[in-house]
């Protein structure tokens, strides 16, 4: 009689343990997969790649960037977004633009700025200089550079800075 009671108790105990372990696994999976992936670094790199390809592709400078005499065209700066097929617009009326990009053309020898283009929200520029632990809430920056040669034989160092904020979408 006593043994039967004990066996019943043990079965209930095992059932309780099973439920606890199952609930624990569900919590673990939810805790891990519930958190969103942070893709801002990759997004900023993709943006920099796209701009680089727009400016210099296959060893040829974008013909709309320079005049036949090798002078930078002002209208390329004005129509930069259209020329490079970029669209920074976001949904919502009072939502701030979560992107910023700047392109600087420096002379090869003196490294002096010759021409610059920028677009987007420049409020995030300061985030790039902050080097602290746990900076997930700050915008992610990507600074890239490459050398390009124009048809007239001039060489420029092109520095591209791309910033993606989108903190709410990428962090918890």
């Amino acid at each position: 009689m006593m043994n039967k009671k004990g066996e019943k108790l043990i079965s209930v105990y095992w059932f309780a343990i099973l439920v606890i372990v199952a609930a624990g696994i569900v919590l673990m999976v939810n805790a891990y997969y519930g958190n969103s992936y942070d893709v801002r670094e990759v997004e900023s790199r993709v943006l920099a790649d796209k701009i680089a390809n727009c400016i210099y592709f296959g060893g040829k400078v974008n013909p709309l960037l320079l005049t036949p005499q090798g002078v930078f065209r002002e209208d390329f700066r004005d129509l930069f977004m259209e020329r490079c097929s970029l669209n920074f617009s976001v949904e919502g009326e009072f939502t701030r633009i979560p992107y910023y990009t700047s392109v600087e053309f420096l002379s090869f020898e003196s490294l002096r700025s010759q021409f610059s283009i920028f677009a987007g929200n420049n409020n995030f520029k300061s985030d790039c200089n902050i080097k602290v632990e746990g900076n997930e809430k700050l915008a992610k920056c990507s600074e890239k550079e490459f050398y390009m040669k124009t048809d007239s034989g001039k060489i420029y160092l092109v520095k591209i800075l791309s910033i993606v904020e989108k903190t709410n979408e990428n962090t918890n």
Binding site: L27, Y32, N35, S36, Y37, D38, V39, V42
Partner: peptide, 24 residues
């Protein structure tokens, strides 16, 4: 012991979940 191990793993999973990054 089972409860402690479970809590440890849940805590670990939530910590790991917070470091999810694409690109690294």
């Amino acid at each position: 012991i089972i409860l402690i191990v479970l809590i440890f793993f849940i805590f670990g999973a939530s910590l790991l979940g917070g470091t999810k990054k694409v690109g690294v």
